[in-house]
Amino acid sequence: MDYYSLKLSLLVTVLVAVMVLFLPWADRRICRRLRLNLEGGLSENPNADRLLRLRQRLLTFGLLFYFIILAWLVFFSRASTEDYTVHVAPLEDLKNAFSTPHGFSGWFHTLFSEGISSALSQIAIVRPADLAQFYLNIMVFVPVGYLLPYVFRWFRARVRIRPVAFCLLLSFLVENLQLITRHGVYDFDDIISNTLGGLIGQLLYIAVGYVVTHPHWRKNLREYRRWRHRARRTTLFPYMKKTGLFRTTLKGSDEAAVCDFYENRLGFRLRQQLDRRESGDVVYLFEMDKIQVQVICSFRESVPDSQYLTLYATRLAAVRKRLEMNGIDAGEYRRDPCTGRRLLRFAGPDNVEICILEAD
C-alpha cells in the first residue's frame, strides 16, 4: 500500500467518524439554543422559518461540497488513459487480496471444525493495495448514504430504500462516465463497494443521526410496535399500503364562492360538475393530485354549522406565504394537539374550517 492511499483512507475514515458523531450532536445543540424544533413541532423562536431555511441551505451546501470532493477523487485526480479498461469479475480483486493455505473451502472447514481463532490465523494479506482500494470505495460513499436522508425530506420518507438506491445509481453513473472519459477503470467491484458504503451510511443515519436529533424515538417505536401487534388481526391492516383517504364531501350554498375559493385561491382543478335535476343539487368535484374535495350545493338542505377539511403540506412556511398572496389570512402557526406538529387554520365558504398540517 502506498503512502497516498493510506493517507486518503485515514482522511476519509476521520471525516466519516466526525460526520456521524459530531454533526447530529452539534445540530441538535445549536437548534436547542436557538429554540428550533427539528421534529416538525412548533418552534419557540419567532424567526424559526428563516433559521430553518438557513439550516437547510447550509446542510445542502455541505452535501454539494462533498460531491465536489468526490468528483475530484474519481475524475480530476486521475490522468486520462489511451485505452478503455473494463473489469467485471465480481469481487475478484478482494478475493485475491487474501491467501489461505488450503483455499477458501479449506478455510471454511477450519472455521466450523476448529473455531474462528484458528481460521483467522490462516488468513494472510498478500495484496494490501487491493484491500485498501475496496475499503476506500466503501468509505467515500458512506457520507452520501448518511447525508442524503439527513438533508432531504424525500430520502427520509423512505429511508430504508431510497438512499442506498441512489448510491447504486450514482455509482453506476460514475463508472460509466469513467469509461467514457477514460479517467479510471469501469470496475464492477466499485459498484458493489460504493453501494455497500451507501447502505452503511444509511444505517448509520438511522442508528445515530435520527436517534440524536429525535430524542423521543424510543417512545414512538414502542407505540408503533404495540399498534402493529394489535392491528394484525384487524380488517384493513394487511391492505394498509394500498389504502388512503381519497375524497372528502362538504356541503355548499353559493356556487360562485365555492368555485372561486377552491379553484382560484387554493389551486384545485375542477374535475367534474354534475347537475342533479331530480334533487336540485349541483355537485362540484375538485381535484389536486390524489386528493379530491366534493362540494354539494343544495337548495333544499341547509349548510351545517361547522365543516372541516384537513390537508397536509411539507413546506408550511411557503404555503402560508402563498395563502397571503391569494388574500387568505392563515394567522399564526398553531400546534396540533394530537401530533404536536405545526398547522395553519383558516376559514372557507359555507362554515368550512380548513387546517393544513405540516407533514414529514
Rank of each mutant, 00 (worst) to 15 (best):
P90N: 10
N176A: 14
R158V: 05
C167H: 01
L170G: 00
A129C: 06
G184M: 05
E114T: 13
I180T: 15
A157C: 06
L168H: 03
I138Y: 08
E114F: 13
L147M: 12
L94P: 07
G106P: 07
I123S: 08
S113R: 15
F155I: 02
L70A: 01
T181Y: 11
S171F: 02
E175G: 08
L136P: 06
W72S: 00
V74G: 00
T100Q: 12
A97N: 07
R158G: 02
F152R: 04
S117M: 14
G106R: 10
F75M: 01
A157M: 08
R162I: 04
H87K: 13
P163D: 02
P101C: 07
I138M: 09
E92H: 15
E114A: 15
I161R: 08
F152D: 05
V74W: 00
E114V: 13
V74D: 00
L70I: 00
L94Q: 09
P101T: 08
E82T: 14
R156T: 05
I180H: 12
A71M: 00
L179S: 13
F75I: 00
F172N: 01
I125Y: 07
R158E: 06
R156C: 04
P101S: 08
L148A: 05
F141Q: 01
L177I: 13
S99L: 14
S171N: 01
V151T: 15
F98Y: 13
S118K: 14
E175K: 08
E114P: 12
